[in-house]
C-alpha cells in the first residue's frame, strides 16, 4: 500500500505531510511524557549527574522503564520491517504484505505504535525506494496514523465486549481496509475506492492472522524472560 511518487496531486501530498507531521508530533510528545520524568536538579547533582545546574530547576531525564520501552520499540520496529518483506500471494494475481500497525499499537500503545510504523516507512522510503518521497506524508497517515493509532481504539473498544484475540483480529482486518480507503480517497476517490477496498478486504484477513500470530509470539517470548 506504499504510494509511489507520481500518484498523488502535489496539493494532497503537501497537505498529508502537514497532517502526518502534526499527528506524529503529538505522539512524540505523549511518548516523551511516558519515557521521561521531571527530576529536581539538586537530586541529579547529588547523584553525580548534572552538577552545576541552578537549584530548584526541574530537568527531564530518561527513566529506566522509559529506556526499556524505547528498546521494545526498536524490537517491534525491526520485526515489522522484516515481516513487511513477506509478500503473500492473494487470488487473482495480486499480493499483500503486513502493515503491522495494529501489532505495534497493541504491544506498545497507540502513540509509540504510530511512531514505530512511521520510522519503518521512513527507512523503506529512504533506502529501499518503497513509497515516494513526496508521498511519505500520505503513507504515514494511512499506515501509522489510521492503521496503527486509529485502529488501536477499535481494538480497545471491542476488547470490552469480546475476547481479546478476536478484538485483535478484527482491528487488524479493519486497519487494512480503512488504510486502503484513506489511500483511495487521497488518490482521488471515485472508482478507486471500491476497487481498493475490495482487494484489501481479502489482504486484511492475512493481516489479521499474522497479527494474531505475532502478538502471541511476542507475549510468550516476553513471559519467558520475565
Amino acid at each position: 500500500m506504499h504510494i509511489p511518487d507520481g500518484f498523488l496531486d502535489p496539493k494532497v501530498s503537501v497537505g498529508m505531510m502537514s497532517v502526518a507531521g502534526a499527528a506524529l508530533a503529538f505522539c512524540f510528545a505523549k511518548v516523551k511524557e511516558v519515557v521521561t520524568a521531571l527530576v529536581p536538579a539538586e537530586a541529579l547533582a547529588t547523584a553525580g549527574q548534572g552538577a552545576g545546574n541552578l537549584s530548584g530547576r526541574l530537568r527531564r531525564v530518561l527513566t529506566p522503564a522509559g529506556e526499556k520501552l524505547i528498546y521494545k520499540m526498536g524490537m517491534v520496529a525491526s520485526l515489522i520491517f522484516a515481516a513487511q518483506m513477506f509478500n503473500f500471494p492473494i487470488n487473482s494475481g495480486t499480493s499483500g504484505h503486513l502493515i503491522g500497525g495494529v501489532f505495534a499499537s497493541v504491544i506498545l500503545g497507540p502513540f509509540a505504535g504510530a511512531i514505530v510504523v512511521a520510522i519503518v516507512l521512513t527507512v523503506q522510503m529512504l533506502f529501499f525506494a518503497d513509497g515516494g518521497i513526496l508521498a511519505i506524508g500520505a503513507n504515514i497517515f494511512n499506515m501509522a496514523v489510521i492503521a496503527s493509532f486509529g485502529c488501536y481504539y477499535i481494538y480497545y473498544w471491542l476488547k470490552k465486549y469480546l475476547p481479546e484475540w478476536f478484538s485483535v483480529a478484527v482491528a487488524a482486518w479493519a486497519s487494512v481496509v480503512l488504510a486502503s480507503f484513506a489511500c483511495a480517497v487521497e488518490l482521488g476517490g471515485g472508482v478507486i475506492i471500491p476497487a481498493m477496498v475490495k482487494v484489501h478486504a481479502v489482504i486484511g484477513i492475512a493481516e489479521a492472522l499474522i497479527t494474531l500470530a505475532l502478538v502471541n509470539i511476542f507475549r510468550t517470548m516476553r513471559k519467558g524472560e520475565e
Binding site: G96, S180, H200
Partner: peptide, 8 residues
C-alpha cells in the same frame, strides 16, 4: 505479484 495498490 503486484501489491494491492499496484494491482488496482
Amino acid at each position: 505479484n503486484p501489491d494491492g495498490l499496484d494491482f488496482v
